[in-house]
Simulated assay, not measured.
Amino acid sequence: MKLTILGTGNATVTKCYNTCFVLSDGDRHFLVDAGGGNQILGILDKVDVPLQDIHDIFITHEHIDHLLGLIWLIRMIGQKMNQGKYEGDVRIYCHSDLVPVITTITGLTIQKKVTKHIGERIQLIPLESGDTKKILDCDVTFFDIGSTKAKQFGFTLTTKEGVKLSCCGDEPYNPCEEEYVKGSDWLMHEAFCLFGEADKFKPYEKHHSTVKEACQLAEELKVPNLILYHTEETHLAERKKLYTKEGQEYYRGNLYVPDDGDVFEVQMVGNIRNIQ
């Protein structure tokens, strides 16, 4: 299983893209969130993920930096369907309250010759917390993260080799997620900024965490591999170095601070759970 990070930034970034990523098995792709604009089209092209090979998309929640790129994807995939250049259906997974939001926005902004596919070849699949779907031949379980801002779901995915990856959305881990996240080999977690700059970026006011808290959490959960994303952008050139330095003070596993476009192999690497 290959994990390609499409964007790493928070909602207001301009020097990198909003947080989203794609999981791939050969030429099959599972896209998670789509960022806030049509840049998603160029980014997917740059990392060689053709639209016609995306058949599963998950949108975590309604905020524009996660949702609006989807509108462009629906438009372009629908056009390809009309041109006979897209085989099969596309399945868009989201919590049940988000389905009418997507339907309304697409109905107001996209021509009917495309939106006619919604409900047929463009399938909006409502999720309830705890639902499991088969995506890329993997079991993917979706769960409510208990957001205090807007209803949001995360997920866990278990590969065919038995490696478990969990995504907690873009808010700090909540104890209500424990039954899904425990035992994960990989954890994807937001880190809005360095702990030393919390007064400057005020992550807690925005219901986010710092590198320190994210790493303390991963250490407590004994997750061997941690990926940090959804960050500020003032340190892009040095972000990897600065975040890694702070994070390693609190976390003994494999810490990854990706840039847009970085690629990972989701496999068993390290095992902090054996550390006493």
Rank of each mutant, 00 (worst) to 15 (best):
L51V: 09
I118E: 06
G154N: 07
H235V: 10
K164W: 05
L221V: 08
T109S: 12
T156P: 06
E213T: 00
Y251L: 11
Y229C: 05
E128D: 14
L228D: 01
E161W: 06
L228S: 04
V47G: 15
N225T: 10
R28D: 15
E87D: 15
Q248W: 11
D33Y: 10
A34Q: 06
E220N: 09
K182G: 08
I275P: 00
A218I: 03
A11G: 13
E249C: 14
S96T: 12
V266G: 00
F30K: 05
E190G: 09
Q276L: 13
T19A: 03
K212S: 09
T60W: 07
K222Y: 15
E232C: 10
N82M: 08
G107I: 08
D89V: 06
N18A: 12
V99P: 06
H208N: 12
H189Q: 14
A218E: 01
G26V: 05
T4W: 01
I272K: 09
T8G: 00
S24E: 05
A34N: 14
C193K: 10
P203S: 02
Y173H: 11
L70A: 05
V223H: 06
I5Q: 01
C215N: 06
F58C: 06
I135L: 03
A34F: 03
T8Y: 02
M188H: 07
K149N: 06
K2S: 12
G42V: 14
L51A: 09
G7C: 07
C16D: 00
G36L: 08
F21W: 04
C168V: 15
C176H: 07
D33S: 13
Y180M: 14
E232G: 07
E205H: 03
E238A: 14
T103H: 14
H61Y: 13
G183T: 08
E265Q: 11
T19I: 11
P224T: 04
D25N: 09
V163M: 00
K212C: 12
K112A: 02
P203H: 04
E62K: 11
E171K: 08
S129M: 05
G119F: 04
L31R: 00
D89A: 12
F155A: 12
D45W: 11
Y229A: 01
T115A: 02
K222F: 12
T244Q: 11
V269Y: 10
K85I: 09
L157E: 04
L226N: 02
E233K: 08
Q52G: 12
Y204H: 13
E171A: 06
W72Q: 07
M188R: 04
I145L: 06
G84E: 13
G146I: 05
L31V: 04
D53K: 15
L136E: 02
V47H: 14
Q152W: 00
Q39Y: 15
H208L: 04
T109P: 11
